[in-house]
Design a protein around this nucleic acid. Sequence first.
RNA 1: GCGAGAAUAUCUAAGUGGCCAACAGAGGCGGACUCAAGAUCCGUUCCCGAAGGGGUUCGCAGGUUCGACUCCUGCUUCUCGCACCA
Length: 926
Amino acid sequence: MSEFDLGKFEEEAHERWLHAFEANPSDKEKFYITVAFPYPSGAMHVGHGRTYIVPDVIARFWRMRGRQVLFPMAFHVTGAPVVGISKRIARKDEKTIRLYRDLYKVPQNVLEEFTDPLTIVRHFAAEYQRVMTSCGLSIDWRRRFITVDPTYSKFVEWQWKHLYEAGHVIKGVHPVRYCTVDDNPVGDHDLLEGDKAEVIKFTLVMFHYGDALIPTATLRPETIHGVTNLWANPNVTYVKAIVDGKAWIISKDAAEKLVLQDHTVEIKEDVPGKDLIDNTVSHPLCGTVPILPADFVDPDMATGMVMSVPAHAPFDYIALRDLQQQGKYTQITPVPLISVEGYGKVPAQDAVERAGIKHQMDSRMDALTQEIYSAEFSKGKLFEKFGGKPVRVAREEMAQEMLDKYGSVIMYEFDQRPVICRCGNKVKVKILHDQWFLKYSDPAWKAQVSDHLKDMALVPPEVRAEFDRTVGWLKDWACTRRVGLGTRFPWDTKQLIEPLSDSTVYMSYYTIAHKIREMDPKVLTPEVFDYIFLGKKSPDLPEKKKLDAMREEFLYWYPYDFRFSAKDLISNHLTFQIFHHVTIFPKDKLPKGMVVFGMGLLNGAKMSSSKGNVYLLEDAVNEFGADTVRMFLTGSAEPWQDFDWRNELVLSTKKQIERFYATIMELKGVKGEPQDIDRWLTSRLQEHVAKMTAALDNFQTRQALQEASFGIETDLKWYRRRLPEGCAGSSGLATLCSVWTRLLSPFIPFTTEHLWRELGNKDLVSFAEWPVADKKLINTKIELSEELLARTVEDVESIEKLIQITPKSITIVLAPAWKYEVFKTIAKSSDRNTVIKEIMKNDAMKKRGKDATDAAKQCTTLIHRLPPQIVEPLAEEPLNERAVFEAAKAFLEREFGVPVHIVEAESSGHAKGATALPFKPAIVIE
RNA sequence: GCGAGAAUAUCUAAGUGGCCAACAGAGGCGGACUCAAGAUCCGUUCCCGAAGGGGUUCGCAGGUUCGACUCCUGCUUCUCGCACCA
């Protein structure tokens, strides 16, 4: 007999699977699933493992159900991260080297070549493929590609031509986080500090100061009417600079920032802050106001000058009050201009006093400012003399008016500071020109997407809300980049297509990837792809025969049936791909469904490569075996739930597989005559098959495994307990072995492939027919009988445990027929409150008096406690309980080790007999 | 802050109005088999109980209902997303 040796099974299977999963169009119905392809910048951990193993289980399931299944894989290598990694390795950054050398186990000679970004991704792409194969993923590797292949670039260009022609690609300007030392935009992962900072659009309000201008930045231009003064910091040295031909007085920081935001700036002279104090400025909309001193004014915030609206800004109010308490500037009073429900005439004063704030440094000031800001924005209205419009309307209009008439300009600034680049320098906002956008904000485009989303199957259904929200929320997406790997942007070849934007319809490319490779990229014009994907004919198409073959593949496979991805991709990739599909492909080629995954934990903590909290997939496979890893990752939680990798749980999964293996090896040779209990086991097996199939139809891998693994195991235990002494089972068990092996095959294909041969099959279990539940073999009656027996045995055991005497005999007292009548009436009644009265109308029952009402009450309780699938058949037809117990008498006596008597309640004379109910006989232990 | 989810016994986790003291696993305890075991099997694992029963539970506080782990309201805590990045 063959020993359980996962390593050996894996070897055997790999050999037999070598080209088995290469899928071509056929007469069979197709099933096409895709997974978000990986960015191979490091080694795979067990979290990645699940992302690919779950779809593989689904692929194997549908393959066995007779579908032609396509499960392809490719590698996403476009983008900036590897460029950064290669640079860090080139400059021998210790942390990076340690990560790649120690955690990812890259050999020294390979690591030395990592100064080239393409080498990194090629190395890890090969690693990914190797590890994925070792996990038994049934991928058609002929279709593998990487996103910098010249043919793929041609495909991307074709895709963009359509987006462009549909008017979805537009050119604009774009403010970005920018580091002046690196001379590059700064991404989230390049930030030392301030990753939550947002770029905010401020309006600069231009105040006249002699022959110069003092710009103050505001988010609330409508409050210009309430300005009572400006604030300047007396401890800061400002500068006079010629900005776009006019003299401005601003902080030095501001001068540097404005250069990055499309302004010409020439600094002329220093202007000490204290020299500004007490001078006046003017603006056509608020007249002449003084400049007051304030230490809180930050020269690094926008222009370093602030306009003061004490009636509506708590900071301004309190700063002014502090000065006035020193007896200064007492002639200034706040000028309110907005009425807002819930606040007095001067909202800022109201709020400050209500909160009991004493001075500027109070920690609640920020919250208070936010509160007033929100209240006025959502509910505030300008006074009649200022137009009477709601704040949210007036703000927009005033900003525009200031830009048009009063010389205002826009300035971008972060909403919080500091924002520090990895290099240690302060990050500023720069306006990038020639920046291209995908116009996801377009309502018409959004509407198309929403429309199609309604027709898509989303798993689990809760994610639909998240998708709907994302479609509504998406704004224009900057889709070109200056650094990284990628395809050149066709309308500005100095730029690259942004990496998320080049990976939105590549699922269609899989259908032709293995064939288009044979063609020269030079001939792959947009017309070629138009023909392959859209069937559009044009003259002079090259290699028509090959194109026709590709068109045939595309028509056969597309659209994909399901796309799998982790849930963090909902707000970008998963939604983007729908936008792009609806633009490019006809309605019958649009995506059909998506399955969204949960995240992975390692021993209860989030998995993270950068923190070193990862367990490499390859290590897991080597230590526990591929099947164990597969079964654990799919069985410990449903795909959309977060899962937690814990070695001790994985170990028990391995034991479970071993147990399964040993059981099959033992049962396959059994040759006994069929017993009654075989019919029960067969009946139960049909239900497990049906339930498991339904679970996998819904992607519930955990549920499916519970059913097929523990469910069948538990039944086998009862089966063996019920077999007559000396009998090891019947030859019918061979069917169970075959069914069980096939059911588990999508999960533990290595073990089952081996067992399948042990069971005498020559072909691959991976392509064996999926078991179908045979309704004819379901036997409700025999299942009920066994249920009654099991419950009775359980009751006897629990009583024995309590009374702790050595029993000499056990008597089972069966309920009389009239109680069955009562049971039936109650079970069939819809109104359980009046049913007892109904029963008592019957003369025969009346005669029994209290016995009858008691029995009715007991039956009601019992019916509540029994599951409906027991009550319903019992209500239709009573079970012959005597026959059940008589037939099992030998079994019961063996179980309890004492003589068992079966008697009718009315002839027994036992006092206990009165408590006997249908499906719950009285038990007397003596 | 905004949006989407979640909270169940020692741990993981099932459970969408009566099948619930609550599936299943892990771990603990006791036992069987073994020279022995991380292997297998049996029992036990909220409290009380010498007859199959009773009591108190499913984040916290209320509500709806004959009846709530399940529905509603409020609160607390946690996870994910909030982009120009894979």
